[in-house]
């Protein structure tokens, strides 16, 4: 299995590089870069600008600039952010952690809610509770995430209990450890719910479908014929099989979350990779954009890898090949 993982990573590396090259080209296609604004600024001397350009190799041909950036990647240097005046790596690390927290929270919330709901719906197939769940799932799948975020933020502003975005309150440093955790949870709630609702709707449907499929299988009949109590039949025999296909989904969902939560981050003012990317794009901060894209791609890749590993581990039919 290790060789499989290594192979996948090796295949992914040229893809990631190609992606970064593509981004680089796109960024260069934009007429004007960050320095044009500086050049217009009468307070900055031409010598300073020339010095900056030399520092960031902007005087060399494009390909050299790109290769220089790639070479620096191996030193874990991601270039310099012109907009923030700090190395990109220091920016990305913090934001990455925040995006990760949000993704993890959403993942947990989604799965802890969707799985029981799916099982519940399968066991009560076609009863009115199943139908209502089905309808609400459909609605939540269709609601635009940004719209939901706005509505929830509006309700929060009415209620006054939850903060309206960001990651920590103004008085964060004065709070006790418990208070700080609670503060984080309060800020986490709305973005997590927004991101999770659509996933819950989809996942619950899939879980229900899987359960129904599994409950039709022969081994369920055997389990009942052995005189096992119904709970054991459902929660051990059926569930264990119904979850299998979902385990790959877990990994893909992780990767999807890391990439797709960007819009919600922006609306809820959650300081993650997504909002960083937006600022970078607006400022035409080349290396920041490229590094964020690369990070996004890497996260996607890791998510997919985790999915494959989990699948191989959980299904003994594959594991013992």
């Amino acid at each position: 299995m290790l060789s499989y993982i290594i192979k996948r990573i090796l295949v992914a590396i040229p893809l990631l590089l190609a992606m970064s090259l593509l981004t680089f080209i796109f960024m260069q296609m934009t007429p004007g870069n960050f320095f044009d604004a500086l050049k217009l600024d009468p307070q900055i001397s031409p010598e300073t600008i020339a010095r900056y350009e030399k520092l960031y190799h902007l005087d060399k041909p494009l390909l050299v600039q790109y290769l220089q950036w790639v070479r620096n990647l191996f030193k874990l240097e991601f270039g310099y952010s012109f907009f923030y005046h700090v190395p990109v790596s220091s920016l990305i690390a913090g934001r990455l952690a925040n995006t990760f927290i949000l993704a993890l929270a959403s993942l947990l919330f989604t799965w802890l809610v969707a799985l029981p709901l799916g099982i519940w719906a399968a066991v009560r197939r076609n009863e009115w509770s199943d139908r209502i769940l089905s309808l609400s799932s459909f609605i939540f799948l269709s609601i635009p995430s940004f719209f939901l975020a706005m509505i929830l933020l509006y309700l929060a502003s009415q209620g006054g209990l939850l903060p309206l975005g960001g990651i920590r309150s103004a008085n964060f440093d004065e709070l006790s450890l418990f208070g700080q955790w609670l503060d984080l949870l309060k800020h986490l709630l709305i973005p997590t719910v927004v991101i999770s609702l659509a996933s819950i709707a989809a996942l619950q449907r899939i879980m229900r479908g899987n359960m129904l499929e599994v409950l039709r299988q022969q081994y369920i009949l055997t389990a009942r014929a052995k005189g096992l109590p119904e709970e054991r039949v459902i929660y051990r025999h059926a569930l264990r099989n119904a979850i299998n296909p979902l385990i790959t989904l877990f990994g893909y969902e992780l990767s999807g979350l890391l990439g797709g939560a960007a819009l919600t981050e922006i609306i809820c003012s959650w300081p993650g990779l997504g909002s960083l990317m937006l600022t970078a794009v607006r400022a035409k901060d080349i290396y920041l954009v490229m590094s964020s894209m690369l990070m996004g791609g890497i996260l996607l890749l890791i998510g997919n890898l985790i999915a494959d590993i989990l699948l191989a581990w959980s299904d003994p039919r594959i594991r013992y090949e």
């Binding site: 081994y219 009949l221 055997t222 009942r224 052995k226 005189g227 264990r240 959980s314």
Partner: peptide, 21 residues
């Protein structure tokens, strides 16, 4: 009663056994 007094054997044990246990 099932399994204790009356037990059942099925045609295709590959499908009648749970594949993950």
């Amino acid at each position: 009663l099932r399994g204790k007094e009356i037990a059942m054997v099925f045609q295709e044990p590959l499908y009648a056994f749970n594949p993950v246990f």
